[in-house]
Computed example of a mutant assay.
Amino acid sequence: MAVTTKIADLTGPGHTDRFGIGGTDLGIVTTAPDGRLVAVFGDTFERAGVGGPGWRSPVVLFADPDGVRSGLRWTGSGGDAAEYACRLVNKPSTNWFRLHRRVTTILPTDVITVGDTMYLHVMANKGLGNVLWSEVLASRDNGVSWERTGCEWPGEHCQGLFQQLTWEHGGDGHVYAYTTGFQRRDGLLLHRVPADRITERDAWEPWGFAGERWDWGNPPTLTVPGSFGELNLRRVPGPDGREHLLLTFFDAGNYRIDAMLLDLPTADLHAAPRTTLLHGCGWDDEDHDRGRVAQLYGGYVVPGSTLDDLHLVVSQWNTTTNWPYRSMQFRTDATELLG
């Protein structure tokens, strides 16, 4: 197991007050076309904790890419307010107009940059874990403002295993996406889409097993069973001078955050090298300098990381007291995945 230590709290009092953020979670990070880091957060409140005034989701904060190793430093926020981190999308879609009385929150699952456009996959929920639909948002101004693209999937798409999503460039003109449900009880599916057709639902193609072989266009088939939660697929340089495909994820069944090293997006996940980065624990057993975090989830790679200096954004929510409810940055060395 990797040795993982806490670098800093990223949100909460003393960190994000000036953006109107007291309590928030997630913090999915990518690099904008202009080079800034863009972090997307989920349910956000003005006071520390869950509940109270100023609820919105999702929201964006910007960070300086030079500050990764000492802890992300926030330089601004998304939306049309000078400092206040605004909800990213306010204009209703047809679904929103029809279902707005039922939707309780819209949560981000992953964000990617393709050329001069950023794409954000989100899921609309009626209560946590009950996904009504998911969709792709787009930003053409480096994550400041976002719009709906019309690319939507019902919550039951792929038998409910296309709700949480993580994606990365494949180096072959395609974007590859691992997906699962939002209930933290299912395994993973794999899809691909041409990078220039992300917002065309019909361009998405499943990876599946049929006729005694795996192939694109077959019915979607689990690539690996499990109880997967939040997912993050990223290309990360290694000390061997190569770029590696790293999948980090919350393993709800084992109450920990793990990572797998993939040689290809279509790698056999049963055989992929795997390690534990952080262990969940009780509130009396926490030790953030030894990788033990109570009620942890998330686990998003910070751009600028390497396998031997891997930085993750990790969430924590005390569901009994509603504080802590925050995102934190941890650092680890994951080179053991290279064997």
Rank of each mutant, 00 (worst) to 15 (best):
G54W: 03
G54H: 05
W55L: 10
W55P: 02
W55M: 12
W55Q: 11
R56F: 05
R56D: 06
R56K: 02
R56T: 08
R56Q: 07
S57A: 15
P58E: 05
P58Y: 05
P58R: 03
V59W: 00
V60A: 11
V60W: 02
V60M: 01
L61K: 04
L61C: 05
F62L: 13
F62R: 05
F62Q: 08
A63V: 05
A63S: 13
A63P: 09
A63E: 08
A63Q: 03
A63G: 13
D64G: 10
D64T: 09
D64C: 09
D64E: 09
P65I: 06
D66L: 12
G67K: 03
G67S: 11
V68A: 13
V68C: 09
V68E: 06
R69M: 02
S70F: 00
S70C: 03
S70H: 08
S70V: 13
G71K: 07
G71D: 06
G71S: 13
G71H: 08
G71Q: 06
G71V: 04
L72P: 10
L72C: 14
L72D: 06
L72Q: 08
R73S: 15
R73H: 14
R73I: 11
R73D: 09
R73F: 06
W74G: 12
W74I: 12
W74S: 10
W74D: 13
T75R: 05
T75E: 12
T75L: 10
G76M: 07
G76E: 01
G76Y: 07
G76N: 05
S77E: 03
S77Y: 03
S77W: 06
S77Q: 04
G78V: 06
G78H: 02
G78D: 07
G78Y: 04
G79T: 07
G79W: 02
G79Y: 04
G79I: 06
G79V: 03
D80G: 01
D80F: 07
D80R: 08
A81E: 12
A81D: 14
E83G: 01
E83T: 11
E83R: 09
Y84F: 15
Y84H: 15
Y84M: 07
A85F: 06
A85K: 01
A85R: 01
A85Q: 11
A85L: 04
R87I: 00
R87A: 14
R87W: 01
R87S: 12
R87T: 10
L88V: 13
L88F: 02
L88W: 00
L88C: 12
V89F: 01
V89K: 04
N90F: 12
N90L: 14
N90R: 09
K91V: 14
K91Y: 10
K91E: 15
K91Q: 14
K91G: 09
K91I: 07
K91S: 15
K91P: 00
K91L: 12
